[in-house]
């Protein structure tokens, strides 16, 4: 360990503590009864979109990002472009 890194060293225990708090908040939620929230959301969102536009299963991406204060749900639906004129 160099002298610089010795003085710059940040303590690791607070990092461990924060990681555990976020992880366990989520894992306790799972045990509480929602086994696969993301998969379920994906299916339901796909069903809603399909009422209006035909989208393929693989074109819907649902991502969940969990953080200490807020979690974000990111939904990306790839809608097919207009059918090319020549294809008709």
């Amino acid at each position: 360990m160099s002298l610089m890194s010795f003085f710059n060293r940040r303590t690791s225990a607070p990092v461990a503590r924060e990681r555990l708090q976020i992880l366990l908040a989520h894992e306790r939620g799972i045990v509480g009864g929602k086994p696969d929230l993301v998969a379920q959301l994906r299916e339901e969102i796909l069903a809603v979109v399909r009422r209006h536009v035909m989208v393929e299963h693989q074109n819907v991406q649902v991502k969940m990002n969990r953080d200490a204060d807020i979690s974000t749900l990111e939904i990306e639906v790839e809608i097919p472009g207009p059918t090319p004129v020549g294809a008709r």
Partner: peptide
């Protein structure tokens, strides 16, 4: 020294 989780943590 902050290298290990504390009892309170």
């Amino acid at each position: 020294r902050g290298e290990m989780l504390k009892v309170e943590d």
